[in-house]
Design a protein around this nucleic acid. Structure first.
Length: 683
DNA sequence: CTTCTTCCCATTTTT
DNA sequence: TGGGAAGAAG
C-alpha cells in the first residue's frame, strides 16, 4: 500500500516524532514537551494507521476537549482523506456516556439517564441539604458548591470523606460525619432520579467494564488502537478504564507532559504518566523535546521555571529559533495602569500587523480580567473570553433544557423542580407535592390528573405547562420539541426576565444548535457534557470585522499558542500561608501552571505582576497568601534577573474612582503616554 | 406557603 | 458581588 508515501515515509518529522508515528504494535508512551509537535505526531500516527488499512472506527482517540479531537481529525483528513473523520473519539466523559447509554440497563439505569453538569449536581446537593433530616446543620457547614467539591474529590481520588475534608477543608473537619451522611444521600438521590454526574460517568463506566467482562471484551475487539492525549491530566479511574479497553495486542499510545499537569483538583496525578510503563511492561518511551513554537529567549525562561520543580522528568526544550525579544516582567502601580498597559501593547502589535487573535491575555482565574474587559470594551477592541461563563449555564437556557430533560427522563427531579418553580405561586413545597403526584401517576402509567391542583391560583399555568410536557404531538426531533416548548415557555420567559430582549438571541441559538441533532439523547448529552461550537458566550459577537483578541484562564489555554502572550500571574489568596500551600503540594502545581502559561507564547511574552484591586473586585479580607505569590517564583528566584527584562509602569496621574470606572480614559491618549511614563529597567 | 427583605458570609482552575 | 439563610409580610 505505498500509495501514500508522504504518510508512510514522512520526511517533515524529526527522528523522534517519526519513531512515535511509525511505532507498531504494543504500548507507546510519548513524553511531549510544550510546543514539540505533539498534535502533529498524533495526527500523523492516526493517518498512518488508517493509510495502512486499520478501519477508522477501530481507532479510539481520547482527548481532553472535544475541540482538540475535532482539530486532530480535521488535520488527519487533510493529510490523508476523509476516512479519518470516522475515527472514534472525544473526551473520556463523552466516550463514557456513549457506552453507558448503550448498556445502562446492565447497571440498573434507564438508557435515558440524565447527565448532571456541575450546576445540576449542586442543585441536587441543595435538595439533599434541605431534607428535614439535615435541618440541624448550622451555618458553619459547607455550602453546596463546597460539598459538591468534596463529593467530587472523594470519588476522583478514590478516598473517603474524612480524608478529603481533613486535607482540603480542615475547618470543616468536625462535621465530617454529617458530610459523609449527606454524601450517601446524594448518591441515593441521583440513583433514584436516574442521573449521573461527571464523576459517575467515569465510575459507572469502570464499574460496567469490571463487572461485565463480555462488554469489556466487545470493546476490546472493537478498538484495535487506543490513543490518549494529555495523559498527565488523567486520574486513577481513567487509568483503570484504559486497562480494560486495551486488548491482548496492547496497542495503547498515550501522550503527555508531566510538566503540564494542572488538574490535580480533579484527581489527576502526573505520576500516572510515569507509572504507565509499569502498568504496561515493555512500553516504548519516546521523548519529544525540540520546540517548534517559541523563541530561545522564551524557552530559556520556561526551562528555568520548570527546572525548580521538585519532581520532574528532565527534558530541556530547545529550538532553532535563536533570535527574539527577551520576555518582559512588568510591574504596574494599579489595576488601571495594568489594563491600560496591556491595551496599549495590543494596539502597538496590531499596528505592526499582528491580528488580534494572535494575541492572548492569560490569567489564573476568570475574574482577574474584569478590569481589563471594561477597558477593552471602552476601546472597542473585540475579544472573547474562553473558559468563562458557558452558554448552557445561562438561566433561561437551563430552563428550556430542563423541559427536554423531563421529557427524556421523567424522573429527573432537578429539572422538574426547575420547571415547576417557573409557575407563579408555586414554591419549593408545592413543587415537591406536584412532583410526587407526577411520579405516582407515572408508576401507574397515567398522565397526572389535574384534580389535585384544581382551583389553586396557579392551576391554569400549571396545566398548560404539564400538557406541553405530556401531550406531545408533532415531530419528535429536538427542534420540533423545542418549538413546542417555546410556545409555553416564551410568556413565562418574558415575564420573568426584564432583559428578555437580550436573552431572546440565546433561545434562538438553542434551536440552531438543536438542528444538528436527530435524537434527543444525543442533543442533551452533548449539551451537558460539552456545548458544541457556537454555544460559547461571545462577549462582543456583533460587529466584528476581525477575529477577536483572546482572554483565557490558563487552564483553558492548554494546547493553544499565540504570537503575543500576556500573563497576569496571580494566585488567589485564600490559603493561610505559603507553607500551607507547600504542604498540600499546591506550589508545585502553581509552578506547572505558570509553565503552561509561559509556553503558550511564540514570539512576545509579558509577565505582569498582578495588580488586581481586591476592593473593587470583591470584598476580601483574608490575610493569607496574596495574589502576587506566583510571580515571586520568578522574581525571588533570580530567574527574572537572568532571563527577563523588567519594566515598571507608572501613570502620570492616578484618578481612582470607587470602582475604577472613572479612571478609564476616553482614548488611549488621555493622561497616559507610555513613552514618557514607562521607565524601563534591565535588572 | 410564597415572596419580599435583610443580613451575613465566602471567594480557583473544569469535564 | 452574589447567594443563601432567616425573618416578615401578604
Amino acid at each position: 500500500m505505498p500509495q501514500h508515501p508522504q504518510i508512510l515515509e514522512p520526511d517533515d518529522l524529526n527522528p523522534n516524532q517519526r519513531e512515535a508515528v511509525m511505532h507498531g504494535e504494543g504500548p507507546l508512551l510519548i513524553i511531549a514537551g510544550a510546543g514539540s509537535g505533539k498534535t502533529k505526531t498524533l495526527v500523523h500516527r492516526v493517518a498512518r494507521l488508517v493509510a495502512e488499512g486499520v478501519p477508522p472506527d477501530q481507532i479510539l482517540l481520547l482527548t481532553f476537549t472535544r475541540k482538540s479531537s475535532q482539530e486532530m481529525l480535521r488535520r488527519a483528513t487533510l493529510l490523508l482523506d476523509s476516512r479519518c473523520q470516522n475515527v472514534s473519539g472525544g473526551t473520556f466523559h463523552a466516550f463514557a456516556s456513549a457506552v453507558l447509554r448503550r448498556f445502562a440497563g446492565r447497571l440498573g439505569y434507564t438508557e435515558q439517564f440524565s447527565i448532571l453538569d456541575r450546576s445540576d449536581a449542586e442543585d441536587v446537593v441543595q435538595l439533599v441539604k434541605q431534607d428535614p433530616k439535615f435541618a440541624d446543620v448550622g451555618k458553619r457547614f459547607p455550602k453546596k458548591n463546597t460539598l459538591a467539591d468534596i463529593f467530587s474529590k472523594v470519588r476522583n481520588t478514590q478516598s473517603r470523606i474524612p480524608e478529603v475534608v481533613g486535607k482540603s477543608y480542615p475547618h470543616f473537619f468536625e462535621c465530617a460525619d454529617r458530610i459523609a451522611e449527606m454524601f450517601e444521600a446524594y448518591q441515593h438521590f441521583k440513583r433514584h432520579m436516574q442521573a449521573m454526574d461527571y464523576d459517575d460517568l467515569l465510575l459507572e463506566l469502570l464499574n460496567l467494564l469490571s463487572t461485565a467482562p463480555d462488554i469489556a471484551k466487545a470493546l476490546q475487539n472493537q478498538y484495535r488502537h487506543v490513543m490518549v492525549d494529555e495523559y498527565q491530566d488523567t486520574n486513577g479511574i481513567q487509568a483503570e478504564i484504559m486497562r480494560f479497553l486495551v486488548n491482548s495486542k496492547r496497542n495503547i499510545c498515550v501522550v503527555g507532559d508531566d510538566a503540564q499537569s494542572i488538574y490535580s483538583f480533579r484527581g489527576a496525578n502526573f505520576k500516572n504518566i510515569m507509572e504507565f510503563p509499569t502498568l504496561f511492561p515493555g512500553t516504548r518511551i519516546v521523548t519529544l523535546d525540540q520546540n517548534y513554537r517559541s523563541t530561545q529567549p522564551i524557552l530559556d525562561l520556561t526551562n528555568a521555571v520548570i527546572a525548580r520543580a521538585k519532581e520532574r522528568y528532565a527534558k530541556d526544550l530547545f529550538t532553532e529559533k535563536q533570535d527574539g525579544q527577551r520576555p518582559i516582567y512588568v510591574e504596574t502601580d494599579s489595576e488601571g495602569s495594568q489594563s491600560k498597559f496591556i491595551v496599549q501593547k495590543i494596539l502597538e502589535y496590531h499596528e505592526q500587523g499582528i491580528a488580534l487573535n494572535q494575541m492572548a491575555v492569560l490569567m489564573r482565574s476568570g475574574w482577574h480580567s474584569n478590569d481589563l474587559e471594561v477597558t477593552l470594551q471602552a476601546q472597542g477592541i473585540p475579544f472573547v473570553k474562553m473558559g468563562g461563563f458557558k452558554f448552557i449555564e445561562l438561566a433561561h437556557v437551563k430552563d428550556v433544557i430542563a423541559f427536554l430533560r423531563v421529557i427524556q427522563n421523567p424522573r429527573d427531579r432537578v429539572s422538574w423542580q426547575r420547571i415547576l418553580l417557573l409557575v407563579e405561586g408555586v414554591g419549593p413545597k408545592t413543587a415537591e407535592a406536584i412532583w410526587l403526584k407526577i411520579q405516582s401517576a407515572f408508576q401507574s402509567g397515567l398522565v397526572p390528573d389535574a384534580s389535585f391542583f384544581a382551583g389553586k391560583s396557579y392551576s391554569t399555568s400549571l396545566e398548560k405547562l404539564l400538557s406541553c410536557i405530556f401531550n406531545r404531538q408533532g415531530g419528535i426531533t429536538p427542534v420540533a420539541q423545542l418549538e413546542r416548548i417555546m410556545e409555553t415557555y416564551k410568556p413565562i420567559f418574558k415575564q420573568r426576565y426584564e432583559d428578555f430582549h437580550k436573552r431572546q438571541a440565546d433561545l434562538n441559538s438553542i434551536l440552531t444548535i438543536a438542528e444538528r441533532y436527530t435524537s434527543l439523547d444525543d442533543f442533551l448529552t452533548e449539551m451537558s457534557l460539552e456545548p458544541p461550537d457556537g454555544s460559547q458566550v461571545d462577549v462582543e459577537a456583533k460587529d466584528r470585522d476581525e477575529p477577536p483578541l483572546i482572554l483565557s484562564t490558563i487552564h483553558s489555554a492548554k494546547g493553544l499558542e499565540w504570537k503575543v502572550v500576556f500573563v497576569i500571574s496571580a494566585i488567589d489568596g485564600y490559603l493561610p500561608s505559603m507553607q500551607a500551600l507547600d504542604d498540600i503540594g499546591q506550589i508545585e502545581e502553581e509552578r506547572r501552571l505558570m509553565y503552561v502559561a509561559l509556553t503558550r507564547a511564540k514570539d512576545y511574552l509579558f509577565v505582569i505582576k498582578p495588580h488586581i484591586d481586591w476592593n473593587s473586585a470583591q470584598a476580601y479580607r483574608n490575610p493569607g497568601v496574596r495574589f502576587s505569590k506566583l510571580s515571586r517564583f520568578l522574581v525571588e528566584s533570580h530567574i527574572a534577573e537572568q532571563w527577563m527584562d523588567k519594566w515598571v509602569i507608572a501613570e502620570r496621574r492616578q484618578p481612582r474612582g470607587r470602582f475604577g470606572l472613572e479612571s478609564l480614559p476616553d482614548t488611549l491618549d488621555s493622561g497616559y503616554s507610555p513613552d514618557e511614563d514607562t521607565r524601563k529597567y534591565v535588572l
